[in-house]
């Protein structure tokens, strides 16, 4: 079984995506043997009120049951987020995805720290993509910065009770960030061919590494290939592919009714 911790649904204003609906995404997921996509709204990146994107996301995925685990996008700089956080929990969102580079705040801003603290009180995981696109070819209206490892470190330090999943990071091996036990790492921008992910596992431990792809902004298969090149025991690969994600999201693996999909991946 594979749980992809780094996926999105919706429109990306700067480029046509290969999958814009849940049904289209499922086709790619099935082709790549992804059982569950942990997904957030791309529309919420640029909506003034990102909560509308959360509603749209739920409408889009609700008919596909366990194949999608929705994460809510919350902007702690926009009024009303406290109410919406409560509503997201009642609606079944399993965690948050923050886009500080597009919502114009720092992870260390007081409002963000309050949001992250509340999320952890509600047992919600917080995931943060370092970036959503490569800056070398960015659209002229897309001025978002990449989140620095130092900014993430400061968040981890100020919010030790919060489980933070860093998406789209690279270069974390041998950095201070790796020492924070509340920080988890998604692998899609790290290399397996030359041992970076192996070193990540050795330094962070195999319980703090999760599989992710960045789909549909990015192709899925590259991330799958990474898991096949990791030189670690099968138990470790399984933790990365889905067990760690289950723990972070509070999913009971026994309750997942995914049938034959469970055994489709052989590392």
């Amino acid at each position: 079984m594979i749980i992809d911790f780094n996926t999105y649904l919706g429109q990306w204003p700067f480029r046509r995506l290969c999958a814009r609906t849940a049904l289209e995404a499922l086709k790619w997921m099935d082709k790549n043997r992804i059982s569950i996509a942990v997904v957030s709204s791309l529309n919420s990146v640029l909506y003034m009120d990102p909560h509308d994107g959360n509603y749209e996301l739920l409408e889009e995925v609700e008919q596909y049951g366990e194949r999608f685990v929705p994460l809510a996008v919350v902007n702690p700089k926009y009024p009303g987020w406290e109410n919406e956080l409560e509503e997201c929990i009642s609606l079944g969102f399993r965690g948050l995805r923050l886009y500080p580079q597009y919502h114009n705040y720092l992870l260390t801003d007081e409002d963000c720290l309050r949001l992250v603290k509340k999320a952890s009180e509600k047992n919600l995981v917080v995931s943060i993509p370092v970036r959503l696109r490569d800056g070398r070819g960015r659209h002229w209206m897309d001025l978002a910065r990449d989140i620095s490892l130092d900014e993430l470190k400061q968040l981890a330090e100020k919010s030790p009770e919060t489980k933070i999943v860093v998406l789209e990071a690279r270069g974390v091996v041998d950095t201070p960030l790796i020492n924070y036990s509340n920080v988890y790492f998604e692998i899609s921008r790290m290399n397996a061919a030359f041992g970076e992910i192996d070193r990540l596992i050795e330094q962070a431990g195999d319980s703090r590494v999760v599989f992710g792809s960045g789909f549909p902004l990015k192709y899925l298969q590259s991330a799958i290939l990474k898991t096949k090149l990791i030189k670690k025991p099968r138990e470790t690969i399984e933790k990365i592919l889905w067990r760690n994600a289950c723990s972070l999201l509070g999913l009971d693996q026994k309750e997942l009714r995914l049938g034959s999909i469970e055994n489709m991946f052989l590392p």
């Binding site: 290969c18 290399n191 397996a192 192709y219 899925l220």
Partner: peptide, 13 residues
């Protein structure tokens, strides 16, 4: 970019 290089060709429709 080894996995990226191979993966994008394998995955393309």
């Amino acid at each position: 970019s080894m996995e990226e290089g191979v993966g994008k060709i394998l995955d393309a429709e």
